[in-house]
Computed example of a mutant assay.
Amino acid sequence: MTDIKIFIVDDSAVVRQVLTALLADIPGFKVIGSAPDPIFAQAKMEKDWPDVIVLDIEMPRMDGITFLRKLMSERPTPVVICSTLTARGAEVTMQAMSAGAVDIITKPTVNLKGFLQEAQSQVADAIRGAARARVKKTAPAGPKATLTVNPKLNADSVIAPSTATTIGETTDRVVAIGTSTGGTQALEYVLTRLPRTTPGIVVVQHMPEAFTAAFAKRLDSLCQINVKEAEQDDRVIPGLALIAPGGKHMLLRRSGAQYRVEIKDGPLVSRHRPSVDVLFRSAAQAAGRNALGIIMTGMGDDGAHGMKELHDTGALTVAQDEASCVVYGMPKEAVKLGATDGELPLSAIPELIIHSPTRAKFLKG
């Protein structure tokens, strides 16, 4: 199998050295070069074009976003942004994601070397996901790396399994969406096409802490509906989309006649926090057949088991189809598990949400 060829563009010599050494230890990865800015990078890459570019944002001579836009218009290549955890950095990184970047690796302003070494599996997953993204011909992934990782926990570690109480069908609907790699662009496409009368929406997008607020703010500026980073006890109401905060789980709760969200700490579930499995399980318990579950583009299997629980309550559950996904991982796992009632292209998902059909209506066509 062909190694994934990686090029690192970062003005920090420490970042270039640490990332090069870290990635060199992972089977299936090959760092073919690095450069302190995009102009040096362009000249070097012409000799041997990479499968994935790891790109900093703030650099001399040409900033990362300018380079990214140029790259995507001339020679689309999967890009993973390597950015610092700052409010300003988060806003700029959201611009990069909108311009076509596939994923984010966060880097702190202190103890950078130690952080990157501890985050080896996260960095490796981001690069593997990017290599499979549809911005270019997919590069074959190398053999699975031997990494030291924490045990993969399921939703039981955050929310207890259902007690099998049946929830009656009502006219009060809620939409639960889960997505990961490629999801920032997919969510922008979907949410910008929704009217203010849309049912309340809860979203888990795999994204690091400090980035979800900027992401929600950007979407809010583009959409007719309101979009915000979710806070404890926020109501789920028509015309509002709540984005789970990075580094926290988000659960849907029923409080009398109202839906609210609970924001809580907890371990990584399916190696993520926030986790789609946690959101979908809570939607199964709080809303049951009154929910619409949608799983979109993303690498891995987070959300598949939670969607199966939601599906088994009688809720309508739908996956984004392979052709329109950046990475057909999470939807594929949900389909394999029998957790979905069907697949739809990204272009059809806004209409699905607007009409928010029951499962019976959807299956009738």
Score class of each variant (00 low, 15 high):
residue 122 Q to S: 10
residue 153 L to W: 07
residue 159 I to L: 04
residue 150 N to W: 10
residue 138 T to D: 08
residue 170 T to Q: 06
residue 130 A to N: 04
residue 95 Q to H: 10
residue 97 M to I: 03
residue 121 S to Q: 15
residue 135 V to H: 06
residue 108 P to L: 07
residue 104 I to S: 01
residue 140 P to N: 01
residue 159 I to G: 00
residue 116 L to W: 07
residue 168 G to T: 14
residue 119 A to Y: 12
residue 102 V to K: 05
residue 122 Q to D: 07
residue 112 L to G: 06
residue 120 Q to D: 05
residue 137 K to W: 11
residue 160 A to D: 13
residue 136 K to V: 00
residue 105 I to Y: 03
residue 97 M to L: 15
residue 148 T to W: 12
residue 135 V to K: 10
residue 86 T to K: 10
residue 113 K to V: 07
residue 169 E to R: 12
residue 162 S to Y: 04
residue 146 T to C: 02
residue 163 T to Y: 09
residue 108 P to W: 11
residue 147 L to R: 03
residue 122 Q to N: 15
residue 106 T to V: 02
residue 152 K to M: 08
residue 121 S to V: 06
residue 97 M to P: 00
residue 140 P to V: 02
residue 161 P to I: 09
residue 139 A to F: 01
residue 132 R to F: 00
residue 111 N to L: 13
residue 155 A to M: 07
residue 164 A to W: 11
residue 144 K to A: 05
residue 89 G to V: 01
residue 145 A to H: 09
residue 154 N to C: 06
residue 151 P to G: 00
residue 162 S to D: 11
residue 110 V to H: 13
residue 135 V to I: 12
residue 99 A to P: 00
residue 166 T to V: 13
residue 112 L to I: 15
residue 126 A to K: 12
residue 163 T to D: 14
residue 115 F to A: 02
residue 160 A to L: 15
residue 124 A to Y: 07
residue 156 D to E: 12
residue 139 A to S: 14
residue 139 A to H: 06
residue 144 K to M: 04
residue 137 K to R: 14
residue 136 K to Y: 02
residue 125 D to L: 12
residue 87 A to F: 12
residue 114 G to K: 13
residue 110 V to A: 06
residue 108 P to M: 04
residue 148 T to D: 08
residue 100 G to N: 08
residue 153 L to C: 09
residue 160 A to W: 08
residue 89 G to H: 07
residue 152 K to E: 11
residue 143 P to I: 07
residue 136 K to W: 07
residue 116 L to V: 04
residue 129 G to A: 15
residue 146 T to Q: 11
residue 114 G to L: 09
residue 165 T to N: 13
residue 130 A to F: 05
residue 103 D to R: 03
residue 134 R to H: 10
residue 106 T to C: 10
residue 150 N to Y: 11
residue 158 V to I: 10
residue 92 V to R: 10
residue 127 I to E: 03
residue 90 A to T: 09
residue 95 Q to V: 09
residue 154 N to W: 01
residue 93 T to I: 10
residue 147 L to N: 01
residue 103 D to A: 05
residue 124 A to H: 04
residue 159 I to N: 00
residue 168 G to Y: 01
residue 96 A to W: 03
residue 134 R to D: 06
residue 110 V to M: 08
residue 126 A to C: 06
residue 136 K to E: 03
residue 164 A to I: 08
residue 88 R to E: 13
residue 95 Q to L: 14
residue 93 T to A: 09
residue 115 F to R: 07
residue 122 Q to V: 13
residue 123 V to F: 04
residue 146 T to L: 08
residue 168 G to N: 11
residue 133 A to N: 09
residue 166 T to A: 08
residue 125 D to M: 14
residue 155 A to W: 00
residue 85 L to K: 11
residue 134 R to P: 03
residue 132 R to M: 11
residue 151 P to N: 04
residue 143 P to T: 05
residue 133 A to C: 14
residue 101 A to C: 11
